[in-house]
Structures are given as C-alpha cells and as structure tokens.
Design a protein around this nucleic acid. Structure first.
Lengths: 178, 178
DNA sequence: GTCTATACGGGGATAGAC
DNA sequence: GTCTATCCCCGTATAGAC
C-alpha cells in the first residue's frame, strides 16, 4: 500500500461518509486527494473497488473492539462495555463508522439479506450468555432489545451531539442494566 | 392532481424506496409508469421537485397517526400505542415509510440539522407527560430512550421480518412499560 | 396534457506518455 | 507509479409538435 493509495482511501472515506457513495464523483476524490483521477482506477479498478477496499478495513477494526469485550469476565461489565461501544466508535473513528452505518441504506447493500458480520454474531452470543448469567428470564429477547436500542443510539450519535449529552444518555442506559 | 400525476408519484415512491433517490433515473420512472419522461418534468419541474411532492404527503399522513395517540386518555395506552406505531406504519404503507426512513442518510438531507417535524415534537411532548403521569423519575430521558429504541426497531422492520417476530418483540417491549 | 426528439453536461473509465 | 488527455455513455432537462 503506497502513500498515495492510502491518501486516496482516506479521502474517499471522508467524502463517501459526508456526501454518500453515489453522489461523490471520482473526480472530486482525485482533486481533494491531490492525485490524478486515472490513478484511482489504476489502483482500485473501479469505483466499487474503492468502496470494497474501505470495507475490508471494517472487519478487522471491529474485531479489536469485540475482543476487548470478550476478555472481560464480569457479565455486567460486558453489557456495559457493549453499551459504550457505539459512542466509542464514533469518538475514535467518526467518519469511518458513520460510513458503515449509512451504508445500510445505500442501493447495492440494502436489498441483500442482512448479513451480520462474524464479530457481530460473536458479540450477540456473548451478550446473550451475559444476560443469562445475570438472571434475565428471556436473554434472547433482551439482547435483541439492546441491539435495537444501540442502533437507535448510533443514529443519535450521527447528529454530533455534545459530549455531555452522550455521557448523560450512556449513564441512563447503563442504569437500566444492573 | 391528474391520474398520470398520481401514477408518476406512486411509481417514483416505489422506485426511490427500492433503489434510492440518486440511483433511480427518471427514465426508469417514466418507463414503469408508462408515461413519457418529459411529462415528469412538465409536472414536477425537476427530479428534486418529484421528491418534494412525495415528502409533502408525509406530514399529513403522520398527522393522522399522531392524532389517534393524542386522543387516548390513559398515559400507559399512549406509550403502548407509540410503541406500536412503527410496526403499524410499516404494515400499512411499507414503501412510503421505508423511503422516509432511508432518507435520513441521503446526501441532501443528512447534512441538515435534524429537523423534527411538528408532529414528532408533539408526540415527544405527549409521551414525556405520559411518563411523568406514570411516575417515572426522569421522563425526558425516558422518552429519549424510547425514541432510540423505536428507531432501532424501525431498522429491524425494514428487513421484512415475519409477523410472528414483530408481535413477539412488540409484546416484549410493551412488557417493559407497565 | 402528453409525446417524441434532442441538447447538454458530467461521471466513470481507458490509452499512452513519462 | 503517476499524470494528461480523451472517450463514451447515460442521466437530467428542454423544445416543439400534437
């Protein structure tokens, strides 16, 4: 991966996250990255290839975060860490995760059956067990409830709320699980 | 509103919901509606005008649904009716509300500050009061929690789950509020 | 109100030089 | 590896006849 290749990927990521995949011309990516348009196609074949290269980074990044939660031994700590995950992602790698999130609604992905990544499945299983250990009578439903909640939380986080707001809402959610 | 105008709107709605606004050419709308492409522009000026015409229908439809909830006198019944609202919208006017929902992430709307409609604000206020009457210690946070949850629920509903699944999850959510 | 034909611009992608 | 120049298609929008 050359320096220019990385520069192209970073720029594309930023613009896709901001304007959407379909409405970002390759000419703009080239211009803002300070490279020629032709170079994009030489390295990534076509515009979809550019997106695929960005998405390939997604899985390994998520893997790191999930591993940290798996390592926790206390089930309640696992639940709380999961609750904190969206805010953590958005604070550390905002554009990257905004793109992942908004992709759910873009043409080429939305009509595929929802394909949860390995790591998402792993996390779901882990939290189901955690709820069981904590004595919740319906752990499967409980985890689905939490997934929906965190999905909605992610929507809120896309609107760039204040740190104070985020902390307040996280504390409130966590207070529901103890 | 002539018959052809309505036909164009219905077709555009269906295609926008399915493929997204940016990736649906006006030529396809014309073809599937069985009208000439020129007619679309004669009636709606441009492609954005077509979207605006669709969105104009949104507010009045939501108005009806919110009014029904407002009419309820029991605060718990109001909360439960709000929980049922997303599933109700998706079952009755699936494509229409899928489009509204996915619009959150499309270029021209996503960078605007989140502009809640009058009806959404009205409902938020109503449910805040309901939580207060029900004795919840932090009604504002409680309503935000519910909004996030229902946002996540809507995401789930976009994946066309079975009726049985929907009923199960609705019952589970409602069991949390009693 | 509606259609056919067409103009215009922009976006994705390629060729070939350096 | 990188740039410049260019092609070509397709999508939006308009003109003008009926």
């Amino acid at each position: 991966m050359t320096e220019k290749q990385e520069l192209i990927l970073e720029t594309a990521l930023r613009l896709f996250a901001k304007y959407g995949f379909d409405t970002t011309p390759t000419s703009q990516i080239a211009k803002e990255a300070g490279v020629s348009e032709g170079l994009i196609f030489r390295h990534f074949t076509n515009k979809d290839g550019l997106m695929d290269a960005i998405l390939a980074l997604s899985d390994e990044r998520m893997s790191t975060h999930v591993s940290r939660i798996v390592e926790l031994t206390d089930p309640l700590a696992q639940v709380h860490a999961t609750i904190e995950l969206p805010a953590k992602l958005f604070s550390e790698e905002r554009e990257f995760w905004m793109l992942q999130f908004s992709l759910k609604w873009q043409k080429k992905y939305k009509n595929q059956p929802y394909q949860a990544s390995t790591h998402q499945l792993e996390l779901t299983q882990l939290i189901t067990n955690a709820f069981q250990k904590l004595g919740y009578p319906e752990p499967e439903k409980e985890v689905l409830f939490l997934i929906m909640l965190l999905d909605g939380l992610s929507s809120q986080l896309m609107r760039q709320p204040s740190d104070e707001f985020i902390q307040t809402i996280l504390a409130f959610i966590k207070s529901k699980y103890r």
